[in-house]
């Protein structure tokens, strides 16, 4: 089974990194510090999470604490699904 982290990784590589190989995308790589994501990118990411995992991301949840790395996203989505 493909994990949430792997699916989001694929999305980030194709949509934000455009396949570039010079950025090390580890589980804990910060999207902000590595300048992977811009303001539109956050909305694209949230849209991807909502449509792919059937969750709803509230405004107060749109926080780097939840969304700034693959690991954080996996944890966040996992919790939302468990609550859902």
């Amino acid at each position: 089974m493909v994990t949430i982290e792997a699916q989001v990784r694929q999305f980030v590589i194709e949509n934000f990194l455009f396949g570039r190989s010079d950025v090390m995308l580890n589980g804990d790589t910060s999207f902000l510090e590595s300048r992977i994501i811009d303001s539109t990118g956050v909305l694209e990411l949230v849209n991807f999470l909502e449509t792919t995992y059937g969750i709803e991301v509230e405004e107060e949840e749109m926080d780097p604490a939840n969304l700034d790395s693959l690991e954080r996203i996996a944890t966040f989505v996992g919790k939302k699904q468990a609550r859902g």
Binding site: L32, D38, S39, T40, V42, L43, E59, E60, M62, D63, P64, A65
Partner: peptide
């Protein structure tokens, strides 16, 4: 409009 929809935490970072 996309910028208006950002959370405060992200606005500060950007």
């Amino acid at each position: 409009p996309r910028l208006q929809r950002q959370s405060m935490a992200y606005l500060r970072a950007f």
